[in-house]
Computed example of a mutant assay.
Amino acid sequence: MNKLLLTLINKSMKLKREVNILDFMCNSNKSHQQHSCCPADNSSIECLKVLSVICSKRVQKVAEARLDLLDLGIPAGTDPDLLTFDVTADPNNIVMRGTLLEGKVVNSGYVPVSVIISVAGVALPAVSLNLPFQAETECPGACPGDDLQETRPIIEGVLEPVFTPVISIGDALTLGTLTFKVIIRTQITVSREKLVEASVKVIGDINEDRCVTDQITTPTSQTRTFFG
């Protein structure tokens, strides 16, 4: 019994060494050296090189910019109650970059928007803005040499510009800012190449938004001031 057990252990260790060095032939027949992933008869089986998923996460990103009223062409001392805005985001020209670090994905980019500001009903020249964003997503086990994939960004919301008074002298506003925000989402997937021989089960689509054509491009929800 001990001799049989020792023989089985030796065969197992030998097989393990063969697997670790990845020196084998698959989809083979009797005329070639057999491996654990190859059948003993003339039929064949595929050993596959696959991308094994390390993490896959849906991520929201906030693209925003805060600009002085003067930079937007709004005269100093303008009553903010006289301002109205027409903001349109461009979902087709979003720039998004991804950097894969150890255990983390760093995203950066910008969302283009077009803004028309009216003062007391008089429209100022249109302004084109690029709202920058940066987001960090934890992905334990990821390495810089892995494969990084991101789906097409989807715009979840375009917020109304928020006015912030900065400097007032007496009752006259001399400096204020407007903050523009757009919320986008994307699916981040980090994977790694591996050799497998196994049956698989589909657990989901990596891009659930692949059929989305219409996106939110203008503010659709009212922003309320609760205090102040």
Rank of each mutant, 00 (worst) to 15 (best):
L5S: 06
L5H: 03
L8E: 05
N10A: 12
K11H: 13
M13A: 10
K16I: 06
R17V: 04
R17W: 04
V19Y: 05
L22D: 11
D23W: 08
N29R: 02
K30G: 07
Q34V: 15
H35R: 01
H35P: 02
N42E: 03
S44D: 06
C47S: 08
K49M: 08
V50Q: 02
L51D: 09
L51R: 05
D68R: 14
D71G: 10
T78L: 03
L83I: 02
D90K: 01
P91H: 01
N93S: 07
V95N: 13
V95T: 15
L100D: 03
E102V: 15
V105D: 00
S108E: 09
G109K: 07
Y110S: 11
P112I: 11
P112E: 06
S114H: 00
V115P: 00
I116N: 05
S118E: 08
V119Q: 00
G121N: 04
L124N: 05
L124W: 07
P125T: 03
L129P: 01
E136P: 10
C143M: 14
D146I: 13
D147G: 01
E150D: 10
E150I: 14
R152W: 13
I155Q: 11
E156N: 15
E156A: 10
L159E: 09
S168N: 10
D171C: 14
D171K: 12
L173D: 04
L175K: 08
T179I: 04
K181E: 07
V182Y: 06
T186Y: 02
T186Q: 07
R192P: 00
V196Y: 00
V196H: 01
A198N: 09
I206N: 04
P219Y: 05
P219C: 11
G228I: 01
